[in-house]
């Protein structure tokens, strides 16, 4: 990616989309501090994630939560332990307080009573929910989701969409989501940016419904209307 610049407003559901291999996940890795960009800045509340080190980096990381594509739950721990882990690491809360808060998070993602299970016992949708519960364990300002609907059936995918909208509304969390699931995008996204491999940057930005209706941007129009390039009609 080159010359990539965008702002995300507080409280919005912001989607990064694009075709396979266009660099969506790489951009996400830059944003969450896993992969430093060759040049440039990633500002979270005016603080640069790229240059932050030590305690300031920890403070920044506490402001974000991430749910990875394959959920990345720790398989040797129960679901509850997965969620209590950041609480234990970052707070001085007593054990019962940590467990109570973690159960509240499980309740928020409709996994109440499932805390004793290990991730291997969960379905795909439940794993995604558990990963989101872990991501919101410390009440972050921003939650990054990498392909939250990948590998899920349409119904479970729709449930995850509802959950994201619900959490955004109830908790005021800003969601940054990497996906190319059009159904989800039309349902949940306030703003999308579309990345493209050839231009190595943003090819379109705005509300997905507007982009779908606007033939001026040919690539975005084709993408949102599922029209392959060989289709000559706009």
């Amino acid at each position: 990616m080159e010359d990539l610049s965008f702002d995300i407003r507080k409280g919005e559901i912001f989607v990064i989309l694009g075709g396979s291999g266009c660099g969506k996940s790489t951009v996400l890795k830059h944003m969450i501090g896993l992969l430093p960009p060759i040049s440039g800045r990633v500002l979270i509340n005016e603080q640069d994630m790229v240059t932050a080190t030590g305690k300031s980096r920890i403070r920044l990381l506490r402001q974000i939560g991430v749910a990875f594509q394959n959920s990345a739950l720790f398989g040797s721990m129960t679901v509850l332990e997965n969620i209590t882990l950041p609480l234990k690491e970052y707070t001085l809360l007593p054990e019962d307080a940590v467990n109570t808060i973690a159960r509240a998070k499980l309740g928020l993602v409709d996994l109440a009573g499932k805390g004793h299970l290990i991730p291997g016992e969960l379905s795909g949708g439940m794993k995604k929910r558990a990963a989101i519960a872990r991501a919101i364990a410390l009440d972050p300002a921003i939650v990054f989701l990498d392909e939250p609907s990948a590998g899920l059936d349409p119904l479970t995918s729709a449930e995850i969409d509802l959950l994201i909208m619900d959490l955004a509304r109830t908790l005021g969390i800003t969601f940054v989501i990497v996906t190319h699931e059009l159904e989800s995008i039309f349902t949940i996204a306030d703003t999308v940016i579309m990345l493209e491999k050839d231009t190595k940057g943003i090819i379109a930005r705005g509300n997905p419904k507007d982009l779908k209706a606007d033939p001026a941007n040919a690539y975005a129009y084709q993408f949102f209307n599922r029209k392959p390039k060989r289709d000559k009609k706009p």
Binding site: L80, N99, R103, A104, G107, A112, G113, T170, L171
Partner: peptide, 16 residues
């Protein structure tokens, strides 16, 4: 938010 937590929260059940 408090109501939401109260409504969705379940007691330990089988968590431990």
């Amino acid at each position: 938010l408090l109501e939401r937590i109260r409504e969705k929260h379940s007691e330990p059940v089988q968590d431990t």
